[in-house]
Amino acid sequence: MTRRIDTRLVKITLTSILLVLGLGSAHAAVLLHGVAIATNTSPFNTTPISNLTNRAGLSGSYTAGTDLVTYLATNPTEAGTAVANGYVASQASGTFDFDLGSVVTLSHVIIWNTTSGASNRLGAFEVRISNTSDFASSALVGSFTAGASSAFPVAAEAFDVTDTLGRYVRISGTSSGGNSLTFMEVGFAGVPEPSSALLAAISLAGAAFRRKRVVN
């Protein structure tokens, strides 16, 4: 009596694993949920840091899972004033931390700056990503200079960072010349990790190898 693996189930399961493994590279970047959680700056006029991710004043719906290219093609703008919808720091530079909610492959950071006439608009900035909220260990994924619209509503600007895994994002920025720092909104794009789907596929593979039929 010999034992033989159910090859049909194995083939189906291995195909599923390969498809899941291909998700990270094959899928286009989509909008990611992100929440502003910390800053080392003091707010001017009590503007809360949560303004940076509250989506108030955006011209269209910012929905996690939306294809990034499709979203940017709608020319999403921010119509509000900095005090009402953005964040105004009392310092000319600072760090701003965001929680993406889970580990993702970050590919883009989206900035809605304030207007070009404001000397305190966001200028040079760098982006770091980490798996921990204290950024004890982090990776630098890009250094940029933000542009600005001439007037409200201000346009979105997407910055292509080095694709990197992580959950927490830190933006360290300086103003373009003023003694405070202002920008309106921050968004993120990338590829969510298919960890749960991969685990399920691997579990099926294990079941396939355990499922044997007896051949006389």
Rank of each mutant, 00 (worst) to 15 (best):
Leu140Gly: 01
Gly206Asp: 14
Ser143Ile: 10
Ala189Glu: 06
Tyr62Thr: 01
Val35Asn: 11
Phe98Tyr: 14
Asp99Pro: 10
Ser149Asn: 13
Lys11Ser: 15
Val141Leu: 04
Ser203Tyr: 08
Asn113Arg: 05
Arg210Trp: 07
Ala64Trp: 08
Asp6Phe: 12
Thr7Pro: 01
Glu126Ala: 12
Ser180His: 05
Thr174Tyr: 01
Ile110His: 00
Thr2His: 06
Ala155Trp: 11
Thr115Lys: 05
Ser143Gln: 13
Leu31Val: 07
Ser172Thr: 15
Ile5Pro: 00
Gly173Phe: 10
Leu19Trp: 11
Gly24Pro: 10
Ala208Ile: 11
Ser25Phe: 13
Thr66Met: 03
Gly57Ser: 07
Tyr62Leu: 03
Thr174Cys: 06
Thr145Val: 15
Ser150Gly: 14
Ser133Val: 14
Asn179Trp: 08
Phe152Glu: 13
Ser137Trp: 09
Ile37Val: 15
Ser25Lys: 15
Ser176His: 08
Leu100Thr: 05
Val169Asn: 04
Asn85Phe: 08
Arg3Phe: 15
Thr162Asp: 01
Ala84Thr: 15
Leu198Val: 03
Tyr168Cys: 07
Ser172Ala: 15
Thr174Ile: 13
Val10Phe: 04
Gly177Glu: 00
Gly101Asp: 09
Gly60Asn: 14
Gly57Met: 06
Leu106Cys: 02
Tyr168Gly: 05
Arg8Ser: 09
Arg211Cys: 10
Val30Thr: 09
Pro194His: 11
Pro194Leu: 09
His108Val: 00
Pro43Phe: 01
Ala26Glu: 02
Val20Thr: 14
Trp112Glu: 03
Leu181Asp: 00
Ala205Ser: 13
Thr174Ser: 15
Ala92Trp: 05
Glu157Thr: 15
Ser102His: 13
Glu126His: 14
Gly206Ile: 11
Ser90Pro: 01
Ser25Cys: 07
Val215Cys: 01
Asn113Trp: 01
Leu14Val: 12
Phe183Val: 10
